[in-house]
Amino acid sequence: MTWHSLTDWWWPYLFILLAGWLPTDIWRYLGVLIGGRVREDLEALIAVRAVATALVAGVIAQLILYPSGSLAESSVFLRIGAAAVGFVAYLRLGRHVIVSVIAAEIVLIAGLLFS
């Protein structure tokens, strides 16, 4: 059974539910069950939060180092440099997200235009 197996209007939607919604939300439901158990245990809570935070940091690294689409054609050093400038601007200029985003974008766009 593939995306093109049936020509009925509802088949793509059933395909999305079975191959997209189900294998995604099942992990969320398991997360609710696990999260309900760590409530009392401070050590377990810190551990679960550490795993989740490191994982989101992995997502950040992935988006910067191995991006998809138009960003993939830019130099990896330009992206790391832009992210570093943005992060330092965040730390030094009053910890505003928007300041960091603007600083990183200026470096990135300048790098893309002059390369």
Binding site: W27, L30, V32, V56
Partner: peptide, 28 residues
């Protein structure tokens, strides 16, 4: 890529496992 339903579901499940620890940390 012309994957079967099961093949597509496995690929999606692998990319979504990360939601489990994220949700577990979020619930408390």
């Amino acid at each position: 890529g012309g994957y079967s339903l099961v093949g597509a579901a496995i690929a999606v499940a692998l990319s979504s496992i990360r939601l489990m620890p994220m949700v577990a940390a979020f619930i408390p």
